[in-house]
């Protein structure tokens, strides 16, 4: 028996064994049915992670996926009290151990789960949205911006290597259907969205702040992008009104 195992009691040994640590078997030699616990623990993790990462599991495939999950159960130390949040910890654990595009795919899937269950936004203002440069837009918070190295949300996996780059995706929960939707952003719109969401600047200041960041000034093309984006955010109810 190792020196570590000399200091653990039977319940600790059963927990470790259930997580996949076979070195504690000697501590458990007079206990029956210990495999039942290991099977229950392992099955819960495998089932739930397969549901949360259906695409990623298919992308990572077979034994690699199985061993990632087993490794996580044994060494990942998940702390989430809410079981549905555990896959977020698996994502952190697994990201460094898989291909970058696979990590992007996992991030894409997990963000959808998080947004799907995210608490509802409580409106601060009462006025409906209307455009004026001095107005401050109110956005709900059921969205996130994801940064990808590979555009896993639009390109077939086998072609991703040719598309390595810097991609931004606005992922949000539709306020009527509760489904998750995506809008691809360029880097300008990504900054614009972040500035809008601070809800510190009025619409004119938001645009100015964003232009300053890129060391540029307004042009007809930029103005068109800006107007279209504000319109889209309104149409999608991401802008919910005015503060």
């Amino acid at each position: 028996m190792s020196s570590r195992n000399k200091h653990i009691d039977k319940s600790e040994a059963l927990a470790l064994f259930s997580q996949g640590d076979e070195s504690v078997l000697e501590n458990l030699k007079d206990l029956h049915n210990i495999d039942v616990y290991r099977e229950m623990v392992q099955r819960n993790f495998h089932l739930h992670l397969s549901k949360s990462f259906g695409l990623s599991k298919a992308a990572i495939q077979g034994t690699k996926w199985e061993s990632l999950v087993n490794d996580f159960i044994q060494h990942g130390q998940p702390k989430s009290k809410l079981f549905w949040q555990m896959p977020g910890e698996f994502l952190e654990f697994a990201s460094a151990k898989i291909e970058h595009w696979q990590a992007d795919l996992m991030k894409f899937e997990w963000s959808q789960v998080q947004l799907y269950f995210a608490p509802d936004y409580n409106r601060k203002g009462t006025k409906p949205f209307s455009y004026h440069p001095s107005h401050i837009a109110e956005l709900h918070d059921e969205w996130s911006i994801l940064n990808f190295e590979y555009p896993v949300y639009k390109i077939k996996w086998e072609d991703l290597e040719q598309h390595k780059g810097n991609y931004f995706l606005l992922q949000f929960r539709n306020q009527n259907t509760f489904e998750i939707e995506n809008i691809e952003l360029n880097i300008f719109l990504k900054e614009l969205m972040l500035n809008l969401s601070t809800q510190q600047f009025n619409l004119a200041q938001t645009l100015t702040e964003t232009l300053t960041k890129f060391n540029t000034s307004i042009s007809p093309q930029i103005n068109e992008q800006y107007q279209n984006f504000i319109h889209l955010l309104t149409q999608k109810n991401i802008i919910v009104g005015l503060l």
Partner: peptide
Amino acid sequence: TMNNAHLYESLPVA
């Protein structure tokens, strides 16, 4: 739980 890590299953106490 063990060392604050969750097993998401009920294990027996002594």
